[in-house]
């Protein structure tokens, strides 16, 4: 079996002053995997992502990244392992798309930020695999939400890290853009052998594209596994059943899972 990119050992996440969110968590991220973190609002998806991304320390336990305790890593070395796509608004800037993508080379470029040939090649590759070549010279504030999200993904690709974490990347997108982005993430994970970790509310899309699902509930319990496993062992019913959503294993769809909504 391949070496995991990231492991958590008995990690408890939360905030100081005793606000424990979830744990103990024993999770692993493998190359080429697309992992979707699902769960109701306020269950701690963001806290989990922030902890795995190194933006906040775990309350206890260890996050092991590239064979090292993450807390020990220098910011620059951490930035060579994990890149992020956040929900922060960056579009008030006078920035053009190429500049934003090029900023992904930050941990690799020299002290003045001058791009080497290798940096430029990495940027070109990121642009090509994300399909952003068409709007490279536009200003970032002239892009649609979907285009902007692709650009931020391209920036993360340019950072060339084994792990990319995206916080609710589909939040403001319309349905076609959501599907497009999820398909792109699925393809990137498979083709570039990166681990891609996303939090999302897109239950149906996640079930179709995710290699693994981390399902959190409001009580801080986390169930990790293949989508089919979590349907079979009733984890999904437990998390979403009371909201009138049911899950069945069927044979006619690609992913063999059918979700039905009880709207009335």
């Amino acid at each position: 079996m391949e070496q995991a990119i990231l492991n958590t050992h008995a990690v408890h996440i939360g905030y100081h002053a005793g606000k424990h969110v979830a744990g103990p968590l024993n999770l692993a991220l493998f190359p080429g995997e697309l992992i979707c973190v699902l769960g109701p609002n306020g269950c701690g998806k963001s806290t989990l992502l922030r902890t795995v991304a190194g933006l906040q320390h775990p309350l206890s336990g260890e996050v092991i990244l590239a064979g090292q305790d993450m807390v020990q890593l220098k910011p620059r070395d951490l930035a060579k392992q994990i890149s992020l796509v956040l929900t922060d608004d960056i579009r008030s800037g006078n920035l053009d798309v190429y500049t934003v993508i090029a900023l992904g080379r930050y941990p690799w470029s020299g002290w003045l930020g001058i791009l080497s040939e290798a940096d430029k090649a990495a940027i070109d590759h990121a642009v090509q695999v994300t399909g952003t070549a068409g709007f490279l010279h536009r200003k970032i504030d002239s892009l649609s939400d979907g285009e902007c999200q692709k650009v931020m993904l391209a920036r993360a690709m340019a950072q060339d890290t084994p792990l990319i974490i995206l916080d609710e990347p589909t939040a403001h997108l319309d349905l076609p853009s959501r599907i497009q982005l999820m398909r792109l993430l699925h393809k990137l994970a498979k083709e570039t052998r990166k681990a891609i970790l996303i939090s999302t509310h897109e239950l149906d899309l996640a079930l179709q594209v995710a290699g693994q699902i981390w399902l959190m509930d409001s009580a801080g319990q986390l169930a990790a596994g293949l989508p089919e496993e979590l349907v079979l062992n009733g984890a999904f019913e437990q998390a979403f059943g009371k909201d009138g959503i049911s899950f069945d294993i069927v044979t006619e769809t690609t992913r063999n899972i059918r979700i039905s909504y009880n709207i009335k």
């Binding site: 910011p75 951490l78 956040l86 900023l103």
Partner: peptide, 9 residues
């Protein structure tokens, strides 16, 4: 946040 994620202290 992005600055931090790119390795800036």
């Amino acid at each position: 946040n992005y600055a931090r994620s790119m390795g800036l202290t």
